[in-house]
């Protein structure tokens, strides 16, 4: 990964030197597109595939706590497309349900989503097309978990601190979302998004997501040993409802050789061993 980072820096620097007239910013700052692409990659696309156990703790404004626990499998496809397989462990009433997504990066193509209900042996197609709805009743939205296409927003570099780039993201289609814009603070060293703040239509901050713990996860790229920096603890606060959701990733693994077949009806009805433990 460091090699890629190095290459990016070199290329960018070379580009800027070649065009000194447009180089208003300090020479070591990459373009906005490069920053957001790199951050998007770090947040959603590391490795060829991945697996993790996810636990969520949802605390409402009265202090009532609900939990969610699931195992998630992810596999990258062509051009930003991805497949997700989510096997629920907790709470008891959703245990062993499976949620499967074929995510498409193209803006004009909705994700395909399935839900399997084991007590009825029923494979349901989910008609939901709105990605800005709650994921499993938590304060995280479907789009926070599966990623928001970079094509959806106009990205501007709003500030640079010693440690972070601050990117302002304004939706190209404002009526499709509940925010007017959101800012992302990206760690300059790791390219990991550390904080996201959402502002409503009247410009008031109403939602904050923060990465609280970042860990290096050892993995293999072929024969080579690598480390993927991964956000293993994050929290989202909904300032309007007073509700908070903490999300923790454990047993994180990359490049485990997940087969495309896992993301089909066969495994939706009987989950693979990878999803059950």
């Amino acid at each position: 990964m460091k090699i890629v980072g190095f290459c990016l820096t070199v290329c960018v620097t070379a580009g800027l030197t070649a065009l000194p007239a447009t180089a208003q910013e300090p020479a070591d700052i990459p373009s906005v597109d490069q920053i957001v692409q790199r951050a998007n990659h770090m947040a959603y696309y590391q490795g060829l595939d991945g697996k993790s156990t996810v636990s969520m703790k949802i605390t409402d404004k009265n202090g009532n706590v609900r939990t969610r626990e699931f195992i998630i499998l992810r596999k990258n496809g062509q051009g930003g497309n991805q497949k997700y397989f989510v096997y629920f462990l907790q709470p008891p009433d959703v245990r062993r349900m499976v949620f499967m997504v074929h995510k498409f990066s193209a803006l004009d193509k909705d994700d395909d989503r399935w839900l399997y209900l084991p007590s009825l042996d029923l494979v349901n197609r989910i008609a939901a097309s709105d990605k800005r709805t709650s994921f499993v009743g938590s304060d995280f939205l479907y789009e926070d978990v599966s990623g928001r296409s970079l094509e959806e927003d106009v990205h501007e570099l709003a500030g640079v601190t010693e440690e972070r780039y601050v990117i302002k993201n304004t939706p190209k289609n404002p009526s499709s979302v509940e925010f007017s814009y959101f800012t992302v603070e990206i760690d300059r060293q790791t390219s990991i998004p550390m904080k996201m703040e959402y502002f409503d239509k009247s410009g008031v901050l109403y939602r904050v997501i923060e990465s609280q713990k970042v860990e290096p996860i050892a993995a293999k790229e072929g024969e080579r040993s690598v480390e993927y920096l991964t956000v293993t603890e994050s929290v989202v606060r909904d300032l309007r409802t007073g509700s908070t959701t903490e999300m923790k990733f454990s047993n994180v693994q990359y490049n485990i050789g997940l087969n495309d077949d896992l993301f089909t009806e066969r495994y939706l009805r009987r989950p693979p061993r990878e999803a059950m433990r």
Binding site: A127, A128, D130, S134
Partner: peptide, 12 residues
């Protein structure tokens, strides 16, 4: 035919 017609609101 089933479609989402609002936030967390589905009609079939």
């Amino acid at each position: 035919y089933t479609q989402e017609i609002g936030t967390d609101f589905t009609a079939g």
